[in-house]
Amino acid sequence: MSDTTITIKRSTPKETPEQRARKRLIQFIASGVVLVLYILLAAFVQTKNPQGAFILLIGLGFGYILQRSRFCFTASMRDPVLTGSTSLTKAVIIALAISSVGYMALQMKATGLSLEKLGTDALKSVTQLPGHVRDAGVHTVLGGFLFGIGAVIAGGCASGTFMRMGEGFVQQWIVFIFFIIGSVIGMAVLPAIKSVPFLYQATPVYLPKLLGGWIPAIIFQFGMLFILYIIADIYGKKKSGEL
């Protein structure tokens, strides 16, 4: 790429260096104000909830990380089809693999190495396990499909919508309002869906239980993630003409 013929730096900057320096200073001061207000909020929430300040700190981290790395779950599922890029998909798979290791350790502690604690008084249902083990079925497919369409059209998934609200996107503030309205509609119709046996299966499926132990579950989980990573890598390279 060294033999470039491109003539760059032709457009005139919209801001002079002085204007830029001023903007930096103003926004830096504003960030300080925001931070102080947030700390006050955390101090207040701490009086209501002993874990409040910690949760707010982690949440702040989520927002900062999502924005700084331009991480976008929607793009990770949209771009392979729309643009042929799989770099975010691969990053999501890495995050899933790391999280899996953490949840595996937490759950092994809760279930016992051969799942012997599952079903005892201490751990009646798999839904009590660390992480979200929830009902799997046709409703998951239906909800996921609607959610996927919505996320692409709205220009951001759930976490992405909140992140872009912070970035100053008017569009995402409108999404937020209708996200709330949609959620209320969803909550209102869920009992009706639950009453149709074809649409809703009240069966949380826990892979170590389904596959008969931790070892096959670990092989499935990490094996699938590994295979998907390889597929994403090859697909991405093919689409960009590298292969």
């Binding site: 779950f73 929607t74 979200h132 929830r134 009902d135 409703h139 998951t140 497919v141 239906l142 909800g143 996921g144 499909f145 609607l146 959610f147 996927g148 369409i149 919505g150 996320a151 692409v152 059209i153 709205a154 220009g155 998934c157 759930a158 976490s159 919508t161 569009q171 995402q172 409108i174 999404v175 937020f176 309002i177 209708f178 996200f179 709330i180 309205i181 949609g182 959620s183 209320v184 509609i185 969803g186 909550m187 119709v189 869920l190 869906i193």
Partner: peptide, 20 residues
């Protein structure tokens, strides 16, 4: 886009018991 996308995400997330 914002209206339709927001509604679909809200409904979808509640039906599937969660979001992304």
């Amino acid at each position: 886009a914002a209206i339709l996308g927001g509604l679909l995400m809200g409904i979808g997330a509640r039906i599937s018991l969660g979001c992304n």
